[in-house]
Nucleic acid binder design. Structure first.
Lengths: 343, 343
DNA sequence: ATGAAAGCGCTAACAG
DNA sequence: CTGTTAGCGCTTTCAT
């Protein structure tokens, strides 16, 4: 069913039918009603391509996902973010275009998406070659929002990110308040923006209490179970082992737990562990791991937010550049209760 | 830069320029070269919407991802699959449209995608209400490929799936060959298609050796660390504990390992564990878990394959319905070596 | 309040 | 080999 057919059916012009359906005020309510009903019963859906050719708007937002092996940990987060964004798009009649691109083809991809008119705006994932990308996008002049941040860029750009610094400051404070003085940090790769911020929050909290951060209690690596295990094992075997761990991801926490139990200790009883990213949905699954969020649902929220922001920028081009910092919450694993105090 | 401008620039008709760029044979090589170069230097990119309005082809494939809380485990797999598919699309000039939809809106989504002409074909993820969806899609008459299968559908449809039955038969045989006689199966949710097939393979292998499968050594649940732990813990505490475990996911395997170590035993030395889905990229990360594949890269292959299949169906509508079964490989974790023999 | 007509940027008959 | 002429299905001036 196309507009022409529908209009002939109603003995109206295509113009009127189009106006009626698109909510233009100059249509009488009676005809509007008639048109709406006819459209409904005959299952009329305007052809997206024709419409966007006529209007000049693509009615689609592109998500660019860099495909680099170093970013495996980003995957689970990505899916939740996408789910949140997708919700917003479909609520506003927008489509979501997904481009998975190797790092070296990113520039081309951005330019193509712009030139081919496939999208009205972009969401940039996993900022990495951040400075270049941001500069490029500003030059191309397409509305975009970055999921995450790039510390090394000085140009203004819109982003949505977790407040990693604050989250880790709070987590550290939490452990300090419980009496812990030797806290280990099992962090993500040292050159990742979020890892840098997390470490900063950790050290800030220690500094406020006059505690010298020990390099021997900090590790930076990919966030997997095995790296978490290796790091924790090393820390626990040292001369002055930690009484508490701060883990950047739930997977690291699983590895830490293994190292702890291997020594005949128990996590949550003998040694406190707090995690940030709940990237496996542990809270949902009620695992016995205390989690200092960025839960999966909060990632979904971030997606919703970012999507809302691009749509706003797309619809009113002069929108101010917004930068949103989401706070994490402290949530304790179901069966653990508050972490116990240890000297 | 639009076609009209480019053609005026070259003193050619839009038609000729279009034909030159689209590789039509009736253009002289000299003009084609001239046109190509001009297009290149002036950065001409045909507008996708205009082109697809004219041709009737959307030049896009839709991926529909049902958003149900029960399918959390599908997420990591999804990302890899998407990455593989995305590769194929961009190589063929197709876009990927992603729709994340709640279960109850799926029918509408399919119909809309069709009616609005947004896509030429579909990939269906996480078959669940499978029978209905397949019937619906056949009725709608849009080319589609299912990622996974639906045992309960008797209509023909194209799919790409892992050979779960065979993989678990082989894994079980592997353990049986090592001398194991009491093998536990920690499986996914009982009503999931893949879980049913995996169990079938497991039981088939046992039956061939005249071993009665014990219900007490089989668990069916979501595939998380904590459910794996709970199941393994229960099995190990029983009167006749297993000497080996078969886990449906690497996360379950992690939980199994915890239960094993909690009893002062060691995985790979005292008790053998084999996993199927490497959904966390453990092989890449060199964790000490033997994996009976479906590695992340094989999932990516599945994505490539499925994408190729839809494109084929889209381009030649009379393609026969293809159904592809991918075999898993046995891969042993880096530092484990072959599982030891136990009575 | 409604309609006629002119595009949006491109491809595809149909000439020549 | 190249060009002319219609559209693809919709929106949007400009009339009425």
């Amino acid at each position: 069913m196309k507009l022409k057919e529908l209009s002939e059916l109603l003995n109206l012009s295509q113009t009127t039918v189009s106006r009626a359906l698109n909510g233009y005020p100059e249509v009488s309510e009676s005809t509007r009603k008639r048109v709406r009903e006819a459209a409904e019963t005959h299952g009329y859906h305007p052809n997206t391509r024709a419409r966007s050719l006529a209007t000049g708007r693509a009615m689609a937002i592109g998500h660019v996902l860099p495909l680099s092996s170093k970013h495996e940990m980003m995957n689970p987060v990505f899916t939740d973010f996408i789910a949140g964004a997708g919700e917003v798009y479909s609520a506003h009649g927008y489509d979501m275009l997904l481009s998975v691109v190797p790092d070296e083809l990113q520039e081309r991809t951005y330019r193509d998406l712009r030139n081919k008119g496939s999208v009205d705006g972009l969401i940039v994932h996993a900022p990495k070659l951040a400075e270049q990308r941001i500069h490029l996008l500003n030059e191309i002049g397409i509305p975009y929002v970055v999921h995450g941040r790039a510390s090394d860029s000085n140009e203004p750009y819109a982003w949505v990110d977790m407040n990693n610094t604050h989250a880790f400051k709070r987590a550290t404070d939490f452990l300090l308040d419980l009496g812990h003085r030797r806290i280990a940090l099992v962090n993500g790769l040292a050159d990742m923006d979020f890892a840098i911020r997390r470490r900063a929050g950790f050290e800030e909290a220690l500094a406020e209490r006059g505690i010298e951060p020990e390099a021997a209690l900090v590790s930076s690596d990919e966030m997997t179970e095995s790296t978490g295990y290796a790091a924790a094992r090393g820390f626990l075997a040292g001369p002055a082992p930690p009484t508490a761990f701060l883990a950047s991801s739930i997977l690291s926490a699983l590895g830490i737990r293994r190292a702890i139990e291997e020594r005949g200790l128990r996590m949550g009883r003998d040694i406190s562990v707090i995690t940030h990213d709940d990237d496996l949905g542990y809270l949902q699954n009620r695992a016995e791991v205390p989690v200092f969020t960025a839960t999966r649902s909060s990632v979904r929220d971030a997606g919703r937010l970012a999507a809302g922001m691009v749509l706003e920028m797309v619809q009113s081009p002069d929108t101010a550049v917004r930068q949103v910092l989401l706070e994490s919450e402290l949530i304790l694993g179901q069966s653990t209760g508050p972490a116990p105090v240890f000297g």
